[in-house]
Design a protein around this nucleic acid. Structure first.
Lengths: 324, 324
DNA sequence: TTGAAAGCGATACCAA
DNA sequence: TTGGTATCGCTTTCAA
């Protein structure tokens, strides 16, 4: 690889001068600049980012920590993060943690050693303490970790209310909820939203709420159980789309027609929700927007530019398709 | 951040000695090693990877270049790559190119400047020349770029034959093919496989083959056109699962029952293929295995360990579900 | 067995 | 305007 020295030699100037034209900083005569620029061209010189990083203590790289990129929610998020990062001159290192504490700490260490300039993280298990020890900007996405930490989430409770009310408006008489894992903020909030709408109803019972783990298999099982226990159910609000699809499959197996016998609504608006037959009615999150906002904010934090807010709760919207 | 100097001072030895115990290289007395290890513990010292990279001219980082992580084929691949990379002590930088030549070249430059040790790439537009100029190990995945370049693909033609023959065995009398983009190796190969099986049939015509772009929308349109032109079609082999799902939706809209009126088979075995109703019969690629093999091979190449082969054509297998 | 010092490729201070 | 040089944190050679 050709280095700054080679350029300097070729141009007949010092490395300091080359550095100056590279960074457009300090005084450089027109003639010197010309010579340097030409040499850079001729040698096809590209500054070594590693050397730069060492000196500047920053790497133009950010870390993206997600539970699992195979979870259909995250590819779109990752795409947004990578798009914006690239636009702003940053690269992104991808990390999958499976919500595993050790893996998370491990990746945090690795990223720190690599001098990443900031991290976007989606996690429940990370503690505020762990994060503050990092001493680099962090943005928490999709899930709230702690007050002091910049966070971008969506209106989970409101979305859940909208979904549940929509089912009521569609004349559903008995509405069940397949909730996400206990203790996960967004799952809890969505469950709350559901409850606020139905808990006053005479028909409502706690057993209308069943547990899922945001994945399809758990949802199929939960729905099977649910519909056996409560055959009267004619509406289901699933806490995410993947589970809604599981519910569709389960209902299908049990011979229930959708939406005639049971209306089903999801949450997320992942691409998959348009692939099913019938297409899924769902509460659409602006996933790309989420990633975009997080990345923009992170880079502002990194570059010490002003940020107006460090907490965003993005709007969700109901998209009616054919499952309701 | 605590540096090697701090450790040296604390342990009362030189940085050289600390480096020796860090790398387990050269002579170090038991007592010195003890002291150093203790200081490392006490200070919670983690060597700065950037400084290491600068000296060693390698970064324990690899690049993963894909067209679009939102394309359902790639998350699983990315997950495999990241898993294995992490296991072997490497991080992975994610790049989305949209098959765009400029973006590809840009990412190549960036990765090179960051001293990545190797690159896994999925692309049609990259030239062999571009790649050879890199002077670092590359593995091409999913698509063949050129003979000299380490490559991992699947048996596209054979899989396509299997799919088409399967449809024939299912008593389909008129089998159509929704092919992928012209000029993309795997799309071409799958089309060829289809043709080899049906081109001898008396009913076969070129107009049974329609173009798609590996996405859902194009496939819906293609299928609409196809079924209007040839209502007699009772079997469709789509060149990937996303297009097969598009075909299902189109057939549905046109009031055709699947699999009774039309049998549909896909290719890839993405997670989505299990989410549809009816679940998709498809030619399953070992996607995770693909990523795993590519990463293992790349790291071997990087670390100059022996690799037995630099070309793999992985087996695919038919998984029968309910769309046929 | 150990430490001093050169060097990796850049930046930025200071003196000229 | 320019160049010399210390510096970032680490590895490795060489001499002791």
């Amino acid at each position: 690889m050709v280095s700054i020295k080679d350029v300097a030699k070729q141009a007949g100037v010092s490395v300091a001068t080359v550095s100056r034209v590279l960074n457009n900083k300090g005084y450089v005569s027109e003639s010197a600049r010309k010579k340097v620029e030409q040499s850079i061209q001729e040698l096809n010189y590209k500054p070594n980012e590693v050397a730069r990083s060492l000196f500047k203590k920053q790497s133009k790289t950010i870390g993206l920590i997600v539970p699992d990129i195979m979870n259909p929610f995250f590819p779109e998020l990752a795409r947004a993060v990578e798009d914006i990062a690239a636009e702003l001159g940053y690269s992104v290192i991808l990390c999958n943690t499976d919500e595993n504490k050790e893996k998370e700490q491990h990746y945090l260490d690795v990223l720190l050693q690599k001098y990443v300039d900031g991290i976007i993280v989606s996690s429940n298990t990370l503690s505020a303490e762990q994060i503050h020890k990092l001493h680099i900007p962090i943005v928490s996405i999709d899930r709230e970790i702690s007050q002091g930490i910049p966070t971008i989430v969506v209106e989970n409770k409101k979305g859940a209310q909208t979904a549940t009310r929509f089912l009521k408006d569609k004349e559903c008489k008995k509405i069940a909820h397949i909730r996400g894992p206990l203790g996960v903020t967004n799952a809890d909030e969505r469950c709350e939203g559901y409850k606020e709408v139905v808990s006053g109803e005479p028909w409502f019972r706690e057993s209308y709420i069943v547990n899922g783990y945001f994945d399809m298999q758990s949802s199929i099982e939960a729905t099977n159980k649910l519909l056996r226990l409560h055959p009267e159910i004619d509406g289901i609000f699933a806490a995410n789309d993947t589970m809604a699809i599981g519910a569709i499959k389960s209902a299908h197996q049990l011979g229930r027609k959708i939406p005639e016998d049971i209306a089903i609504i999801g949450f997320d608006g992942i691409a998959l929700s348009k692939a099913t037959v019938p297409e899924l009615t769902t509460i659409v999150q602006p996933i790309y927007e989420l990633g975009k906002k997080a990345t923009t904010m992170l880079v502002h934090l990194i570059e010490k530019k002003p940020v107006e807010k460090t907490f965003y709760e993005l709007e969700v919207r109901l998209v009616e398709r054919h499952s309701t």
